[in-house]
Simulated scan of single mutants.
Amino acid sequence: MPQLAAWDSFYVIVGSAAGALIGLQFVVMTLVAARPSLRVAEAGAAFATPTIIHFGTALLLSALLRVPWQSIIPAAACWGLIGLCGVAYALVVARRMRRQNVYQPEFEDWLFHALLPLAAYATLAISAFAVPSRTREALFGVGSAALLLLFIGIHNAWDSTSYHVFSYKRDADDERS
């Protein structure tokens, strides 16, 4: 399909990055699990799981847009459904963040775990409806949403890893004192 042909390299790069980062996140979580902390496990559903979901969504979008569709409408329906499910999931994550009492989220946490994912998934949903009249702009919406989810995942993975490292170091220092 000619509308998606120009996007081939973009989705190969985004999809490959998302797939590799999913694997890396699993390695990091495995290493962190070797020294479990009860307070960290409680916040996992609010902070760790969404990172894998965002990477997985970027990977899924990249795969869907590489499918040789006969028309862009089925692809738009798929990414629109993903966007609507993502909006619902972003609201669930925000509720989980508010309910957990292990960690007090700061503005940056709300931005990267709730607001930006909500914006990315809403962009996907809106782009699906824009396809019939504004195909080019809709494709830019999907591309920006996939890239935003990838960068959100990178930020959140780094943030979570550094949190675990520094909280472990602080706990070890406290034990030595």
Rank of each mutant, 00 (worst) to 15 (best):
L31D: 07
T135N: 02
V14P: 04
L91Y: 05
A146I: 11
T51V: 15
V87C: 09
V131T: 01
A5H: 03
L139F: 04
A138Y: 00
F26R: 00
H164N: 12
V92D: 06
R39Y: 09
I154K: 01
T30E: 11
R170P: 06
E106L: 15
P68N: 05
G15R: 04
A75Y: 01
L147N: 02
G80N: 02
D174I: 13
F129C: 09
A146G: 05
V165M: 12
F107G: 08
D109N: 15
P36V: 11
P132C: 03
R98W: 15
V142D: 02
R170M: 13
A94T: 11
W7H: 10
G23R: 00
A45P: 05
C78T: 07
T161S: 12
L91G: 14
G44A: 13
K169D: 15
P2W: 00
D174C: 08
Y89I: 09
V131H: 02
A76E: 04
A114W: 08
P117L: 06
L38M: 07
L21Q: 05
G153N: 08
A58N: 08
H164A: 12
I52Q: 03
E42Q: 09
G86I: 03
I53L: 12
V67Y: 09
S16P: 04
P117S: 03
A172G: 10
E106D: 13
F107H: 09
L84S: 13
S62K: 01
F47L: 15
S162D: 12
L84A: 15
L65A: 07
E137H: 01
D109F: 11
A5P: 03
A157R: 08
W79V: 14
T57F: 05
A17G: 06
T51Q: 07
L60V: 15
G143W: 00
P105F: 09
P132M: 01
A5S: 08
S177H: 07
A114C: 12
A34Q: 15
S9Q: 12
S9F: 03
A33F: 14
R96A: 12
